[in-house]
Design a protein around this nucleic acid. Structure first.
Lengths: 218, 218
DNA sequence: CAGCAGACTAAACGGGCGTTCAGCGCGCCA
DNA sequence: TGGCGCGCTGAACGCCCGTTTAGTCTGCTG
């Protein structure tokens, strides 16, 4: 059985890497011929190895999910939380994988929903640790809160992508590091403010919302 | 000079409406022939009226922006804030326009960035009113906070779109009302919690972030 | 050495795309 | 009434797409 690693010099792997980059740059509308040229092979070889364009995309998705999974495993078994955060912050190590994920989140599809679910679960775990440590407040709906925070991150990425296409910011799919620093330049302070100080002064609104929801569906 | 209103029975308007719906449903990859068929005209007539597919999309964008602008104007001149909110909540009145905007936000392009800017400005105004009324806390960066809140909304829409494509939720581009209620079912409580109770217990993090940012770029 | 399997390619196929073009019919104005 | 403009169409064009096919080269295996 082959691993995803010792494949890395074969034409198959070269095609997959080229596709990752092309799809991240140009979206999933990019043509097979462009991917083949990038990889230095003929269009027919792409079909030979992956069966179809959908097969190629599925292989990219699988590869990305595997990379994420193995990274997560490594983080859990070998690193302290502080090291994990530092690793996460270093976007360069992910190469085109990050751009591909951003593109998937914008385009939808199976990888996007699986990635969202993974992120929600990871966020929920991470928040639970914070709650236990006392740095994070407990929630009346931990799963919902985690999902809400993931939605927030997706929105920030989407705004970065929109700004990039309008030429106002570096693209998260092309220059993830530059895009990330540009994003943090304006977003960190509002984020910290929203996370540390209640935006709304009326604290009863939460109870009212819960009551309202319970009334609608018992 | 023709207005956008008394056009509404002409073939040109029918094509534009069909395009709005098609693009919202299937994305901007949808073909001209599909739009033409929906409108009950020939593909050539689409080109005759709009010059090209890009021209058609530009016309859709312009129409949507005009609808938004006139709606905003009407809200400002004739309605109380409470009526405005009620109007906003009634998504049915926007018809395919809402779906088209969601699709644009996912796909990027000029409409998306202009719409985001509009939303940011409107949110900033709205928050300023809240601050003056005492219901909203003041911010150290009102513009940034408004943008952050818009990013949050975009993220919720994007998540709804992803869930819809995975068959787990109604699509915001097809059934905006159903999608909106499904969204509010899980998101309102986390939102209210995050808006009324600080997620992080260490209130000095905001000051630290501001200090850090000021240190990096004086 | 024969033969076979698999990596790989050049060329072509069918189809959908956006777009062009020549012309048809109908209402308006001289 | 003749002609002109315009909304509109059917048919075609060229392009690019994903995919197929037939075949070459190479290296392993009996």
């Amino acid at each position: 059985m082959r691993s995803a690693i010792d494949d890395d010099l074969t034409a198959r792997a070269r095609i997959r890497d080229a596709a990752l980059l092309r799809f991240a740059r140009d979206g999933f509308g990019a043509g097979l011929r462009a991917v083949a040229t990038d990889a230095g092979v003929s269009p027919a070889l792409v079909i030979h190895h992956f069966g179809s364009k959908d097969g190629l995309r599925a292989a990219c998705d699988a590869y990305v999910l595997e990379r994420i999974r193995s990274q997560k495993e490594a983080s859990l078994t070998t690193e302290t939380p502080r090291e994990s955060m530092a690793h996460l912050a270093d976007l360069t190590q992910y190469g085109p994988v990050f751009g591909y994920v951003v593109r998937s989140l914008a385009a939808g599809g199976e990888l996007a929903s699986r990635f969202v679910d993974d992120m929600v679960a990871a966020t929920e775990d991470y928040l639970a640790l914070g709650v236990a440590a006392g740095t994070v407040s407990p929630s009346v709906d931990p799963a919902g809160r985690a999902r809400y925070l993931v939605a927030q991150s997706v929105g920030l990425l989407q705004l970065a992508l929109i700004d990039a296409e309008a030429g106002r910011a570096p693209s998260p799919t092309l220059e993830p590091v530059a895009a990330f620093t540009a994003l943090s330049r304006w977003a960190v302070v509002p984020a910290m403010e929203m996370l540390t100080e209640p935006l709304l002064t009326d604290h009863d609104l939460l109870a009212a919302a819960i009551h309202e929801l319970a009334r609608e569906e018992p």
